[in-house]
Simulated assay, not measured.
Amino acid sequence: MTLPPVLVLAGPTASGKSALALALAQAEDGVVINADSMQVYDALPILTAQPPEAAREAVPHRLYGCLDPARPCSAAQWVELARAEIEAAWHGGRLPIVVGGTGLYLESLRQGLSPIPEIPAAIRDEARARLAEIGNEAFHDELARRDPVMAARLPPGDSQRMARAWEVLAATGRSLAEWQTVPRQGGLAARWLTLALLPPREALRAACDGRFAAMVAAGAVEEAEAFLARGLDPAVPAMKVLGLRELGAAARGELALAEAVAAAQAATRAYAKRQVTWLRHRGGADTVIDAQLSESLLAPIFAKIRQFRLTPV
């Protein structure tokens, strides 16, 4: 039996993945499927660099701005949504092009997930309420008493993952660390081709800085101010969008705009560096493109995709 194809375009923020995905979708009758954990939310389209309207009109784009930012999107939820979109693309005779830099999403889609039971909403809410009540440091201390293994793995600043560890233990009586040793289940049966776009360090740093400056020029400060005015739970993932905290401080007059932009650019560069490290060590790329995306790279990339589609295994 020949498995249907899935193309994955992975890479750090500002590496040019979205532009490459658009070009490939136009050339190969593809559907672009988002695998970025911030772009799934119906909020902050400028700060999360969601594709512009012109791109969405040119080719189908799926799972962008589709979820309420007030509720976290788990890897399991994203996998379920992505699976449905991939299968819809196959049924329509199109090539699914999964694009993003969220390693957990990409890994879970291909390899499956640990079989952790669904966590009741009441327990999830209890974990986040406790975190909000006592703060990150005290919550980390509490987690260390209840689950020292997971607490040792997580810094106090990682509120989302701390809350996840707390809720899994509360709901199942077993540490998340224990669940993670159980073989994964439910990986998508497909024929995979993964391309990792990893520009040289200095080029990527410049791209991060330039893109954030362009976001500010496009109205990111006003977007951040309006979003923060909604008063969402600080623990929800959407509150961790790169640049949101810094631009919010500028909007409140706590930082000069230039200082806020510089701090947000530094945070973006650090995040891109972490993504590159993950992709090099765990990304499982079939092809690594160690260059800034350019017109000259498109022809060999297109040729590789066409060979992949014409050579079923």
Rank of each mutant, 00 (worst) to 15 (best):
D42P: 03
R62Q: 14
A260T: 03
T181N: 02
S18Q: 05
P52S: 04
R124N: 13
V182W: 00
L197M: 11
A171M: 11
A250Y: 06
G93R: 04
P120M: 05
G157P: 11
G11L: 05
P199E: 06
P115I: 09
G253W: 08
L255M: 14
A256Q: 13
G173S: 09
A49T: 12
P117K: 05
P156M: 12
V276G: 01
E137L: 15
G65V: 03
A224F: 02
T181S: 09
Y271S: 11
F227G: 01
A138G: 03
A152F: 08
E85T: 04
A291V: 04
R174H: 15
P312I: 11
I305K: 04
Y271C: 03
D233K: 10
P148H: 14
Q185F: 00
A89T: 10
I301T: 04
A189W: 05
S18F: 08
A138R: 15
S108E: 06
L67F: 13
G112K: 11
Q111R: 14
V261H: 05
G186Q: 05
V149R: 10
P72F: 04
E223C: 00
A49I: 00
H91T: 11
G112Y: 04
Q26D: 09
P115W: 08
S74R: 13
A217N: 02
A76T: 08
N34R: 06
M38G: 01
L143P: 09
A170Q: 15
